[in-house]
Design a protein around this nucleic acid. Structure first.
Length: 564
RNA sequence: UGCCUCGUGGUGUAACGGUAGCACAACAGAUUCUGACUCUGUUUGUUAAGGUUCGAAUCCUUACGAGGCAGCCA
């Protein structure tokens, strides 16, 4: 992980780091405390990764700390399963909250006391109106709201009522506690926002202790204050809530004054990011689960083979600003390729096998060819790959009638079989249906190891191969973008209408070089000339290995073929 | 037509009154035992109009455009 101190990149500081930097230099804060505050009601996605990298990153760079705080103020939506997955994902991304794991529910007692404090100050009241009545009297964006008939209740009455709310004397929704601010405020959030609602739901942490729960606005800033958070970084949609955030901080005897700063959330094209939509994809079975490799979830990306380092790098390059933007997934994929190119061992695998018989190669001979594990990295060493008379090559590496510029095999043509021999195709054998089932070829013994022959003959193409006698069978899963349009949310119609029917292509009967039998989930591998792959952590078995394609190699030939 | 926020190449971002730069993408070429990687080069931009200034992406005004907000969600 690159944790270059901020001073070395002064000109590169984003606006939030600039604020943090200034607050440190001015002495406003001696140490920085940030927090990542997920609601445990879903899995983390790449958008959260941006926030995680920001919050934990700032803490690390500026010598502060970052808390993990679960925002669990709504027991009807939250589950332990999500708490677990969130923690796993953050750790996997490479961040550590140390001892600083908290829950907003840790502060329910304190929050309740503060609610009472507000009542005593005449700044909060119990409202008997129904949710519908409250909504209707809130006014509109252009018209002021009208005060609740209960707005001017006495402190004593409010105190008694609030206590009865806690004691369970009212049904869910029968009473709420509201702040007493300004029903005509231009910012609707300040029109006497609800602070507490009655909810008879079992809470994953506090069990059945509480019947009433604080709203986000009443919990978040105060939780920040309790924990001594100096910079409470959140996304743009909370901008309108900042005046309310500050109102609570100013009107409550909180131990600190945290500052909320908003930045633009991450958007990626060709996918959706809202929890609701991701949940729908899972629930409706459009994907196999939260960790489906096509999902933008952290668990999905991990299973797909995206390295944590690549995700971190990506988050570092997209920047932090206040304008809404949509990032090109190509940038993410570039970050993935960049890491994988350095980290992956090269292997040979044939996804769509076409048999090759080397007619002049001795029937019973087997040679072990030494093949570099990574031509760009000598320290990666080499392995041996068996070569014999019967081989498999990629079906698309042979064309009977090649277009100009085709470097691969064709009748009468010669190519290099990677690290093996120069091989010439003599004949394509067809079955009764006319399909090519086998290539009859001859090799040049003087090119062993793939070396150029003494006669100076050269060859334009090098292709990968696998020994038919030694190959192991496997399934590969080739992924493409989940949606076929850039902005599945935009335009008319349901986002599901834009699902890419070819987002998953399963290939069985793939032929892999024998050394691949030992690869483990999470280990990055490049199938030469094809892309980066990894063993699927969920479905792969020793009997039938399953490999996920993390991302393909750049393919300028394919681009050329499809007409630019 | 209320309030808040924001407008820089195709995308994302930098320039903090003084040469509009970087990454990705695209394109062209070099190299190559991966049509990969790497390297070189090219195309494309300050929403508009005024104003301040020797000088404006930057400051001011207006217009235009984008996003957010009317949950007892977060």
């Amino acid at each position: 992980m690159s944790d270059s101190p901020p001073d070395s990149e002064k000109s590169r500081l984003d606006f939030i780091r600039e604020i943090v930097d200034a607050d440190l230099k001015s002495g406003k804060h001696a140490t920085i405390v940030t927090r990542f505050p997920p609601e445990p009601n879903g899995y983390l996605h790449i958008g959260h990764a941006k926030s995680i990298c920001l919050n934990f990153g700032i803490a690390r760079e500026f010598g502060g700390r970052c808390h993990l705080r679960f925002d669990d103020t709504n027991p009807s939506k939250e589950e332990q399963e999500y708490v677990d997955s969130i923690q796993e994902d953050i750790r996997w991304l490479g961040f550590d909250w140390g001892e600083n794991r908290f829950f907003a529910s840790d502060y329910f007692d304190q929050l309740y006391e503060w609610a009472v404090f507000l009542i005593k100050e005449g700044k909060a009241y119990v409202d008997d109106q129904t949710a519908e009545e409250i909504r209707q009297t809130r006014g509109t964006l252009t018209e002021p709201g009208t005060p609740s008939p209960h707005r001017d209740r006495s402190v004593e009455e409010n105190l008694a009522l609030f206590e009865r709310m806690r004691a369970g004397e009212f049904a869910d929704g029968e009473r709420v506690l509201r702040a007493r601010i300004d029903m005509a405020h231009a910012n609707v959030n300040l029109r006497d926002p609800v602070l507490y609602r009655i909810l008879r739901a079992h809470h994953h942490r506090t069990g059945d202790k509480w019947l009433l729960y604080p709203m986000y606005d009443f919990a978040h800033g105060q939780s920040d204050a309790i924990e001594g958070i100096t910079h409470s970084i959140c996304t743009l949609e909370f901008e309108n809530h900042r005046p309310l955030y500050d109102w609570f901080i100013e009107n409550l005897p909180v131990p600190a004054r945290p500052r909320q700063i908003e930045f633009s959330r991450l958007n990626l094209n060709f996918t959706v990011m809202s929890k609701r939509k991701l949940l729908q994809l899972v629930k409706d079975g459009h994907v196999s689960g939260w960790d489906d490799p096509r999902m933008p979830t952290i668990s999905g990306l991990r299973r797909r083979g995206y390295p944590a380092e690549a995700i971190r790098n990506f988050c570092g390059t997209i920047g932090v600003t206040k304008f809404n933007s949509t990032n090109d997934v190509a940038l993410l994929e570039n970050a993935v390729r960049d890491v994988l190119n350095r980290a992956s061992a090269r292997r040979m695998a044939v996804l769509d096998p076409l048999k090759v018989v080397v007619t002049n190669y001795p029937e019973d001979q087997i040679e072990e060819m030494e093949v570099a594990n990574n031509p760009n990295d000598e320290t990666a060493g080499a392995r041996s790959v068996p070569f014999c008379r019967e081989l498999y090559i990629e079906r698309e590496d042979f064309l009977e009638d090649p277009p100009k510029g085709f470097f691969r095999l064709f009748p009468g043509g010669e190519v290099r079989f990677r690290s093996a021999y120069f091989i010439r195709c003599d004949e394509a054998v067809r079955d009764d249906a006319g399909e090519i089932v086998e290539l009859r070829c001859t090799y040049d013994p003087e090119t062993r190891g793939g070396q150029n022959p003494p006669d100076g003959r050269k060859v334009k193409g090098t292709i990968h191969w696998v020994s038919a006698r030694h190959a192991i069978d496997a399934e590969t899963r080739l992924y493409d973008r989940l949606f076929s349009v850039e902005d599945p949310d935009g335009g008319e119609g349901d986002f599901l209408d834009h699902l890419n029917p070819e987002s998953l292509l399963v290939r069985r009967g793939c032929k892999l070089e024998p050394s691949l039998a030992e690869s483990k989930a999470g280990e990055p591998i490049q199938f030469e000339r094809l892309g980066y792959f990894c063993v699927d952590a969920r479905d792969s078995t020793p009997e039938t290995p399953v490999f996920n394609r993390t991302v393909g190699l750049r393919d300028s030939w394919a681009k050329q073929k499809t007409g630019k």
